[in-house]
Amino acid sequence: MSAQMDLEQNSKVKAKKPKKESSLWGDALSRILKSKTSFIGLMIILLLIVVAVLAPVLAPYHPIDDGSIIDRYQPPSAEHWLGTDQLGRDILSRIIYGARISIKIGVIAVGIAFVVGTLLGGIAGYIGRWVDNVIMRIIDIMMAFPSILLAIAMVAILGKSLTNAMIAVGIVGVPQFARIVRSTVLSIKEKEFVESARASGVKNGRILMRHVLPNCMAPIIVQATLSVGTAILDAAGLSFLGLGAQGATPEWGVMLSDGRAALQTSPWVITFPGLAIFLVVLGFNLFGDGLRDALDPRLKQ
């Protein structure tokens, strides 16, 4: 399901040496602002957030209540910039409100993958031995599944709704986080400062949370940024298959799936929501790419 997992797994995001946090992130930020592509990515993300926050102000119509069947399938015009859909609702307004849903998907789905994946990977890497073995075999099993089928099955179990689709997408993303964190933790846990903490009698859980995981943050954050794009794509895909957002919800995937019946007669109904998904995903990918380059010391030269 995830296109990105390979992107960063194979490239430069590898174990990071513990660094002085402030300078790392400060450098990174200035490098991101210098790179035009990641700057564009950042701008798209900011735009998305602004649109989502100001949706009621920006949207010319209500995304669900306005519109009547008589005005259905109107092509783009002065009143409806992007046309109307099968119930005569304004597509632009629906896309604007859809931005809120996209952010929600990004935050919740990636949040789940992030928290669960980091904990599992951290524990596996730090404790090692049989714990590592058990956790990583479970991860292997999850990865032997085509992830979209895993997500579909999960939605079938939990029931069809946007929330459950987000949970499913989140769970499907767990293995990637777990793997990255595990390999990073493996390289950090033998480091001096960890050893010394252990020698001075600090408890394992505390070492993991206070010393080890914070030092894995750079690759995890890059992964998280890139995952947002994937999560939005996946959730839209589930909605498109009728497994995500339901009914009148102005979710972009649902809009695509609803508009599909009118592909021949009213192509604008599917054109614009698709474009919106594409732009937002592109934004997160550009920014994530830039972030990775910025955090990768090897590119400094």
Partner: peptide, 14 residues
């Protein structure tokens, strides 16, 4: 970059 960002079901429909 465009390729990894495109929803394939949308691309297919287009």
């Amino acid at each position: 970059l465009f390729g990894v960002s495109i929803p394939i079901f949308w691309l297919g429909l287009m």
